[in-house]
Design a protein around this nucleic acid. Structure first.
Lengths: 223, 223
DNA sequence: AGGAGCGAGTCCTCAGACAACCTGAGAGGT
DNA sequence: ACCTCTCAGGTTGTCTGAGGACTCGCTCCT
């Protein structure tokens, strides 16, 4: 069962996911021994070191444990992976869409609940974003994310705030290399902030939704 | 800074923990590049394969990400506290509100994207929920959650699906003891399902939003 | 029957080689 | 002056071969 000869992703990741599926699928129950490194390598059509790195990743994920001289043993078949791990594996467009789902409604709530301090935070983040616009992509994306975090914080819901914090690192990484293509600098978040500040929830939601939709079509158009 | 010549544990694990401490300790801020594999190997006094496996483990843990040709970059210095744990600690009303944020928009997407199989799943879940309505609270809540999971699945976004799965256990536990107070049995999810099936996103979103809002006021009124 | 010894199998680590890829500097043209 | 192209150096990705360390089952001897 050799892995595809084409290489859309690193071989190690392919091997890791392949083995993960087998384990989660119940091919090797808890306590059983996996085939040896050389056997797995031959079966997957990759080198031994590739298999070793895949097994190392599964060990870090808590699915297997290797004992020198004995073999690699399954210690769990539960998809113990936390939400964060799934996020990193998901396609950028899906992550971005989920982020849009979260933020559009959060903006609506923020318009009703934001305190004056929240507004001050958004205004400050807005200014920082404007400054960062002239700097590198990474700095700009950081400032942009900080602004959006401030807007979500205005919703005064700790679950939503934590959730956005989950998305932040993945989004930052994905967007930093795409700022040029996506035209993030052309967006006008000031209007959204003023809508939230003035308590106009539907307006804030509509503005954000339009921006996210435009970015999303660009994202799907040009990978 | 060579690792100890004695080997109480495998070298890879020592190297992994060593690097993890450095990253969590802030030696390399988010976004910075780690020294190259060969440099790290020399600095730790181990071979390059050992360093590679350590980096692979840290990548699986979500701390770093390696890009071929560029280097290994720090993407998080957070000690990976579990989002799930935070969910369990949050107030029920906040969790429920976040769930509403997620589902209302997911329903809107589902109306555009759901396949016929998705609709079949929702109809089946609807029937099961109707049957379960006569049974105990726990069974009914399970059936209700299954129905909502089917609706979210219709949005065809794996991130949203995973996210709802994250909420499910917490919601189930919290709602099972409150079904009587919240009047969940009185809701009419059939209308939402038919709106999704007929492609009417705004209608589906509005219906869900109304239901969630009503439940939320009851939830805050009588904890 | 019981224990010591042995050997096959396995993981652990290293070294070297080459491929694939990214980045930045410099040449060259507009 | 600015833009584009090329190229060289550095980095990660992958494979292979080798030897060390450890586990476990089998054999042989007492």
């Amino acid at each position: 069962m050799p892995l595809g000869s084409l290489r859309p992703s690193p071989l190690v990741e392919q091997a890791t996911e392949h083995l993960r599926e087998q384990i989660l699928g119940g091919r090797w129950p808890v306590g059983t021994r996996l085939p040896g490194e050389t056997a797995l390598a031959a079966s997957l059509g990759v080198g031994r070191s590739t298999v070793r790195e895949a097994v190392r990743a599964l060990a870090e994920a808590g699915l297997v444990k290797s004992r020198q001289g004995a073999g690699v043993f399954v210690i769990s078949t539960e998809p113990q992976e936390d939400f964060r791990a799934g996020l990193r594996r998901a396609a950028v467009a899906e992550v971005y869409e989920a982020r849009a789902v979260l933020e559009v409604q959060a903006a609506r709530l923020a318009a009703r609940r934001r305190t004056d301090e929240d507004v001050a935070g958004m205004v400050a983040a807005l200014a920082a974003r404007r400054l960062a616009s002239a700097r590198g992509d990474a700095a700009f994306v950081d400032a942009d994310m900080a602004l959006h975090a401030a807007m979500v914080a205005g919703a005064r819901n700790s679950v939503l705030t934590d959730l956005f914090a989950e998305f932040a690192p993945v989004l930052r990484e994905a967007l930093a290399s795409l700022t040029g293509v996506l035209g993030l600098r052309e967006a006008d978040p000031a209007a959204v902030v003023s809508a939230i500040a003035s308590g106009d929830g539907p307006e804030a939601a509509a503005l954000l939704n339009a921006e996210f939709s435009a970015t999303l079509t660009r994202l799907k158009g040009a990978p």
